[in-house]
Design a binder for these strands. Sequence first.
DNA 1: GACACTCTACTACAGCGGTCGTAGAGTGGC
DNA 2: GCCACTCTACGACCGCTGTAGTAGAGTGTC
Lengths: 142, 142
Amino acid sequence: MILRKGVRLTKAELEIMNAFWELGAASVREVQENLPARKRPAYTTVQTVVYRLEEKGALRKVKRVGNAQIFEPAITQKAAHRRLIDDLIDLLDGSTRPLMAHLIESGKLSLEDLREVESRLMKQESEPPEGGAGASAEGKAG
Amino acid sequence: MILRKGVRLTKAELEIMNAFWELGAASVREVQENLPARKRPAYTTVQTVVYRLEEKGALRKVKRVGNAQIFEPAITQKAAHRRLIDDLIDLLDGSTRPLMAHLIESGKLSLEDLREVESRLMKQESEPPEGGAGASAEGKAG
DNA sequence: GACACTCTACTACAGCGGTCGTAGAGTGGC
DNA sequence: GCCACTCTACGACCGCTGTAGTAGAGTGTC
């Protein structure tokens, strides 16, 4: 158990990762061109972030095409989101109450959402998970 | 309308703010001594963070006692939490789905929580908010 | 084999955040 | 009025992030 924290991604990194999760495996060039024009940084900016993501273990090199390196995600979007959410809950002292309360007040959560979630929860309670962690494609390769 | 974004607080800043929210008005010294021993940084570290919080508008000076400055929160804990949550949702592309899904899977959300939230939601729907923003004690004093 | 083009590798830099030290000003006690 | 103590004011440093430029290596085409 213990740490297995995964990778913490910043907003810009997440932007890049989103492209990879969409494209699968891709070159820096492809990713850069896939970014929405409004927030499309210079090629080398994307390149730098991609390299840092590789160092962090969020991307991995898979092959070369011409002289271009092709990368693919080494973590799932879900895992990345999990990390973000866990960090947030940590900041909120581990309580989900303020979170839920805010979601409701801001109208970001509808009754429908709730109902769906609720039914999932009930299903889960009758059929609890095994380990607790639920690792899948986390990437623990050093 | 428009921005009204409030203040973005980091983990360390939040730690300090927690002390202020607990203590009300306090000096740097009081805050530092109130921090749990494990994560109690040097006095000047707390001081620096407090000053930065004042610049950000999260704290304000209220008086002096001896030669010590007394600060108090200029934003509510709720507002700070709101900001954190909004930022997260933004990172999740505005969708609360992954958030809810994760909360359930991680067991951080119980059926009880859900039920409570649900009843609040229903109450709200029959009695919608007035302005939309719902500002309270946000602190817009220059 | 030379050229144009692309990609990599490296470097740079500014801003923020976390951390702290030091010098000097202010204050209270005697 | 002097001293010890406390607090402020300021500066410093490092790591991370966002952003980008430049030099040079690699590649495909003639």
